[in-house]
Design a binder for these strands. Sequence first.
DNA 1: CGCCAGGTGTTACCGCGGGTAACATCGGTG
DNA 2: CACCGATGTTACCCGCGGTAACACCTGGCG
Lengths: 211, 211
Amino acid sequence: MAALEAPRREQLLNAADRVVRRDGPGASMNAIAAEAGITKPILYRHFGDRNGLFQALTERHTSGLLDAMRAALAEPLERRERVELVLDTYLAGIESRPQVYQLLTHPEAGDPNGVGSALAPAMRQIADEITRAVTAQVDLGPDAPLLSETWGRAITGMVLAAGDWWLEQRPCPRARMVQALADLLWGRLAAAAPLPAAPLPSAPPPTPPTP
Amino acid sequence: MAALEAPRREQLLNAADRVVRRDGPGASMNAIAAEAGITKPILYRHFGDRNGLFQALTERHTSGLLDAMRAALAEPLERRERVELVLDTYLAGIESRPQVYQLLTHPEAGDPNGVGSALAPAMRQIADEITRAVTAQVDLGPDAPLLSETWGRAITGMVLAAGDWWLEQRPCPRARMVQALADLLWGRLAAAAPLPAAPLPSAPPPTPPTP
DNA sequence: CGCCAGGTGTTACCGCGGGTAACATCGGTG
DNA sequence: CACCGATGTTACCCGCGGTAACACCTGGCG
């Protein structure tokens, strides 16, 4: 099966990499072929279809982030510190090469499947890693399997959305973001004091009519 | 602007709605036109382009979900109960019409945007609503603005990813899912007892081969 | 030498989807 | 009547993913 050091393949992947860095995940096969100085059929000979190319391109970058996440999850620290390390590892990753991690987190693709297709493959792998770590490290009683799997997905989605927003807006330094997210996971929302109820309507117009 | 009761427009939106319910967010303009018993140019006259149509279609369904979320966020309950109500409201929404809410949560489309474009518009509105509710109801000290905005995004992404997974796999009844997510937000991950460290490698091969 | 095999490359095409131009039709109003 | 606006059509353009068919150049092997 494949992967038996094909230098040409690497060249083509490099070209694809350049184009994706420039045009984002929506880069066209024509553009990639042109960047490589060739024409489409060669790309299709090497990668089968567009999905195959982007999969190869993705796998190239996934391992780095994934290994870092695994290492952080296995670090022998107090739990809170470990969680902060994991969060910081992810944010540092997307911060270092935004365009590349855009490809990992939002492949866009849009293949025809009945339903679902929620998390990108790379994100699914991260979710699995979190699930595994939670299962191995935390005593959650009889519901452990369901809880850890749910939490793996939930935490991944949480840090994904928060990370996207942070990258776009840069509302604070990274360390602060890590604290904010760790605080959320540590139940600070539950523990904080209530504010006196203000009888203000939260939204000016309720909603235009629905016929 | 707009919305000045254009009955024809409503008819077309109804047809589009039917097609999206059947084919999901990838529905083609041709299919929608056919369902409406007409041809493409009419659609384009009414909605400008595909994006315009789907935006109109989205706004139609957004209000329902958003109103429900607002109502849940404003319910006079103990905080934990309110959070559970909000989670349940969202999950009930996506459960009732998966294809429709697929449209709200994953518009996919693939329009040319420079960078970013993390959360779909409907999700962004939900995030704003959560932010507003947290700001109004919880005392978070001097960092309140940053925390509540971060948490709004984070919680939205969390429930989005978890909801997608739940819809796909149906691993448990809805009430259980609500409990699992509320437990996470309530710091159960932080509070649970540790397990004895098992020196097992968490992943068998660092990176599996490419089939 | 001739010949085949395989990797590299090309041009030209198909089907489909978004989007548009140009023309046809009908109902009402001055 | 002429005019106008909404409704509708056919026929087309373009770009994209994907493919067929053909051309070339190397090398090994009889």
